[in-house]
Design a protein around this nucleic acid. Structure first.
Lengths: 139, 139
DNA sequence: CTTGAACCTCTAGTGGCTAGAGGAATTATC
DNA sequence: GATAATTCCTCTAGCCACTAGAGGTTCAAG
């Protein structure tokens, strides 16, 4: 029967106090009990959920996905395919992002290489930036 | 002596009309001439600058960096070190982002692998998400 | 000269928080 | 038990880089 204040919850979860209130407002977490003086009090389940949220956010899952995950987590005897699907979708996003970043990295590196360290007037960097046609990859 | 309307400029540069006005507002581009009826008119230099901006934005350079670049581009006989520095800084950012994404990718993939495709109750995905300690990488 | 498309300014909204004001409740110290 | 310090409450506003829309004006084609 733990009885955390919102500040306790914040330090334990790493999620800031106003963010916790924000999550309540957008109904990502349910409103919790209050003291006679209207202050929020949480139990350890709430802490678990917040940690879950923090972790999933850190992995880049969208708020939308988070809401789905939390919903799914409540149906403990349902098959977990939907969960899989969400993770797969995120993996795909990450892969796409990686591909783009790698292409970009190549481009940036080659810009640096082709710079002759002269004056701005004949700097290849500016030329490349001015002329998208010079790029292999689109971004 | 080209004489583009803001719409022409938008179609030619790929930057949307309101965005061009926004760029003017935040002084990323200079205010341009107007017709007697107060409509903006641009020349081909403006188009070049806008294309430059669009391209640099697509490469992920910050607005801050963009402003610096545009300033630097005006000093045509200065050395281009500062330009190099900006590109290098961006390259470093990209590398950091890549490292994190690769770690994340690994994690997501292993989550998917460890899922036994049973019920939500014993799905490893939920367990991993609930417990940050299980992760090698921080994110 | 009429029409219709494109333009103008201005305000407000987006997401995911963060910051601050002004005031009430709780906790720690004496 | 009084007081002081801290934490909490709600509410409003701000952040970035745009995007959307209202209400009205100007331009270019026919």
């Amino acid at each position: 029967m733990t009885n955390y204040s919102i500040g306790d919850l914040a330090t334990r979860s790493g999620v800031k106090v106003p963010t916790i209130r924000y999550y309540e407002e957008i109904e990502l977490i349910a409103p919790t009990g209050r003291t006679a003086g209207n202050q929020r009090r949480y139990d350890s389940d709430a802490l678990d959920r917040l940690r879950f949220i923090a972790h999933a956010r850190a992995m880049g899952f969208s708020m939308e996905s988070l809401k789905s995950m939390l919903r799914i987590a409540n149906h403990r005897d349902a098959p977990c395919e939907d969960l899989d699907a969400l993770v797969e979708a995120r993996l795909k996003e990450v892969d796409e992002r990686l591909a783009k970043l790698i292409a970009l990295r190549t481009e940036l590196a080659s810009m640096l290489e082709s710079c002759a360290h002269g004056t701005v007037a004949d700097c290849r960097i500016l030329q490349v930036l001015s002329d998208h046609e010079e790029c292999r990859a689109e971004h």
